[in-house]
Simulated assay, not measured.
Amino acid sequence: MTDSVTGLLIPVPDEDGAPFWEYAARGELRVQACAGCGEPRFPPRPCCPRCQSFDSEWRRMTGRGRIWSYVLPHPPLLPGYAALAPYNTIVVELAEAPAIRLVGNLVTSADAPINSVDPAKLRIGAAVKVAFHDTGEGLTVPRWLLERP
């Protein structure tokens, strides 16, 4: 789905992932984990891929991690992104759950534009922390800030 004003992509929560977005709206980063074997998993799903249990819980994360990968898309694929190029999309490996990797944007503040960080500052392994951005479309999304800008 795209934002009605900016034309930027907005995630569409599904039944399994709805709690992720509810916690994000409260400023909490949580990931689903198996209540049977304890294995964290993302994206959320009904069954644990490790032990096949259908019991799950939502664990609060510190919101700290490292840039595992990134891309500077060229050319922009959607018109809403054209004025923002170059912008970044990063993959963050969570500190306490390294197998969990979340996709987002590296920004200078939670409400800054997605092109607010100089692309020269992007580094694999850079320490980041989560910040939450209200999209204005009834959804709050995690974004990422450099630990040491």
Rank of each mutant, 00 (worst) to 15 (best):
S4C: 08
V5C: 05
V5L: 12
T6V: 03
G7V: 04
I10H: 07
I10Y: 01
I10T: 09
P11E: 15
V12D: 11
P13H: 08
D16T: 07
G17I: 03
A18N: 08
P19K: 07
W21L: 07
Y23L: 05
A24P: 00
A25G: 03
R26A: 15
R30F: 05
V31Q: 03
V31L: 13
A33Y: 00
C34R: 03
A35K: 11
P40E: 00
P40Q: 03
R41L: 13
R45K: 14
R45A: 14
P46I: 00
C48F: 06
P49Y: 04
Q52T: 11
R60Q: 14
T62A: 12
G63N: 02
L77C: 09
P79L: 04
P79Q: 07
G80A: 11
Y81L: 03
Y81I: 00
Y81H: 01
N88F: 08
I90R: 03
I90E: 00
I90K: 03
V91M: 14
E93G: 06
L94G: 00
L94V: 01
E96H: 02
P98M: 06
R101H: 02
R101D: 00
R101T: 01
L102V: 14
L102A: 08
V103W: 00
L106Y: 05
S109M: 10
A110C: 11
A110G: 15
A110P: 14
P113K: 01
S116G: 07
V117W: 07
D118H: 09
A120V: 15
A120S: 15
L122Y: 05
A126N: 02
A127R: 13
K129W: 07
F132I: 06
H133C: 13
T135P: 05
E137D: 12
G138C: 05
G138I: 04
L139R: 08
T140P: 05
V141G: 12
W144Y: 09
L145C: 07
L145H: 09
P149Q: 14
